[in-house]
Structures are given as C-alpha cells and as structure tokens.
Design a protein around this nucleic acid. Structure first.
Lengths: 168, 168
DNA sequence: CATGTTTTTCATATATTCTTGAAGTTTCAG
DNA sequence: CTGAAACTTCAAGAATATATGAAAAACATG
C-alpha cells in the first residue's frame, strides 16, 4: 500500500469514526491530518490537503485547540501560524476524557442531583420508578466520575498495566 | 419540584446528552422515557408523551432493541405490543460499551492493521510520522480492547471496587 | 377467510448542522 | 503610519440527518 493512499484512507476513516461520536467529520479529519503529519502545517496546507475552505479550517482548528488537542506554533520571523497535534495517543485520550467529563458528565450529575427533592409520595409507583432510575444513574455516574478522574491523573503504563494485571 | 416537571426535564436533558454522543436526540428521549416509566409502554404511549409520529417511534424503538437496551413484551391476550427498557444502569452501560466496541473499535483496529505494510523507506520522515501515529493508536486500541472486554464480563461491584481500590 | 387492529415501510417534508467565501479585522515590516 | 499578509467572522447556501404520515404489510380474531 502506498503512503499517500494509506494517509487518505486514515483521514477518511477517522472522519467517519468521528461522526459516530458526536464529532464533526471535518474536525476529525483535520485532527487526523495533523496527527500523521511530520511537520506542523499552516491553514493553507490543511485547506489544500483536505480541499476545504479557509473559514472551515479556521473554525475547526480553533475547536481542536479548545479541546487541547492541537497547538498553535509561532515561528519567529514568520508571519504565518503553524499548527501541530499532540501525538502521544495516551495524552490525546486523556485530554478527550477530561474535556468530555467536564462538558458532559459533570453537568449531567448536577442535573440529576436536583431530582432529589421530588414532591409526592415516595411509595407511588411512578415516583418510585423515576427516583430509582435517577438514583441508579447518580451512583453509576459518581463512580465513573471518580474512575475517570483517577485515569486522567494516572501515568499511562502504570495505569493500564496495573489494571490489566488486577483484572486478569 | 413536581414529578411531571422532573420527568420532562430528565427526558429533555437525556436527549441533549445523546446528541453529544452521536445518538439521535429522539432515540435518547424514547430511551429516557422508558427508563423512568414504571410500566411498559405501547407505541401510542410514546407517541403521545413525546409528541412524535408513529413512524418515528417505531424506528427508534427498533434501534433501541438492536442496541439491546429495550425489550418487546407481548402480553397474552392483548393485541398491542409493550416495550420496556433495561433499568439496571450497569447493564445499560455494559451493553452500550459492548455494542460500540463491536461497531466501532473493532473495525477501527482492523483498518489500522492494514497499514502495517506501507511501501517506502521507514526512515523517511513522513512515512515514519504516519507509522508512529498509527502504531500508537494500535497499541492503545489493543489495550482498550482488552480492558473493555474485561469490563463487559465483570460483575458490577467487583469491577468498580477493585478498580478504585487499586487506583487509589 | 374477511375484517378490523397494529406494526412497518418509505417517499417526501422538515429541521439541523456544516461549509463557503467575501468582508472585516488584526498584525507587522518597512 | 501604510499596506500587504494573515487570520477571523458570519450570513447565506449546501449537505446531512431526522420526522412525518399515508399506504402497505402483518396479524389475530371470530
């Protein structure tokens, strides 16, 4: 398989993959492109290689920077800005987990906690069903919360190795 | 807070939550509704409570059944079908992990494995960058794969308790 | 097996999300 | 300052995803 072909396929697949995870296809593709590029790229490089508009590149790179997955690099003496992605996959995963936790799990747990004081008879079938489900989610969420926190702070090998050892 | 209000808010939020995870908003809402309903519901119940069309309900329930999150219940002597969701959140999470692994992680690893035989000099900067990234993903993916497999087969408390104990 | 009931399908309509590109802004060397 | 280069914004258009509802199919009952 030729390198150019492999690159293209990787970018395409990574994009498709992203769409299943609530990530915009193009953003995932930009990320993929930066992940496999030896050197940092300019907006124009990305525009050209993915055949997308300047505005689109700009928007998606900004988003990737927000997610902490891409860095803006300023080369002294050059006008253009360069961009490069974090290449260490463990760090990438950690960063994504951290952000999603902050953006989604935390707000969800906050919401769930509001449901503690429901008016009405706790013995009522419907009330009970609601509270049971909500409490189940709360418990699960709290545990996931702790687990992810720990994961985010753990060292790559230590964490996975220990985990696998214990689990086996 | 009134029960009806809380239910409504839960359904709405669960739906919004779903959209961040590549899940269609309505499907997540139907799931939420079934999660908090004491009894199983018919298609008409869901239509009415979420104000959505019959076709939409039918489609989303089928999808939820595909995911193994909802069951079709036939009551002897009744013509209508009833639907109920798995209420144990651990099982729900396990099931989702299992399905997403099958649908997404496995194909991704399969794709990545194809990139092993790239033509060209392994010393070339671009080739090396590509292979490094791809191999990093492969290693990470393989570990995630093992971890998720184990999680799916583990007992709820055993797993989380052990994990938390080890991690601390 | 004829009939009314329930479920499923799917072409079309609607809604949402993404992309473009030109105009506006910032930046900096001269 | 000035002007060119680079970056950012955003309204309008394009593409994608989702929802509707009527028609068809499946089903159960007498």
């Amino acid at each position: 398989m030729k390198l150019s072909e492999a690159k293209q396929q990787f970018i395409t697949s990574w994009g498709a993959f992203g769409t299943h995870w609530g990530i915009n296809r193009t953003m995932a593709q930009v990320h993929a492109l930066l992940l496999i590029s030896a050197d940092s790229l300019t907006q124009d490089d990305v525009m050209e290689q993915l055949s997308i508009s300047r505005g689109n590149v700009n928007m998606n790179i900004r988003e990737l920077i927000d997610w902490g997955l891409v860095n803006r690099i300023v080369v002294p003496g050059e006008r253009k800005e360069y961009f490069s992605a974090e290449k260490d996959i463990w760090k990438v995963a950690t960063q994504i987990v951290k952000e999603r936790k902050k953006r989604e799990l935390d707000p969800m747990l906050k919401l769930i906690n509001q449901f503690n004081n429901i008016d009405g008879d706790k013995k009522d079938k419907d009330t009970k069903a609601f509270l049971d489900t909500v409490n189940g989610i709360k418990k699960f969420g709290d545990q996931a919360d702790k687990m992810l926190d720990t994961m985010v702070h753990a060292e790559e090998n230590w964490f996975l190795n220990t985990l696998l050892k214990v689990i086996k």
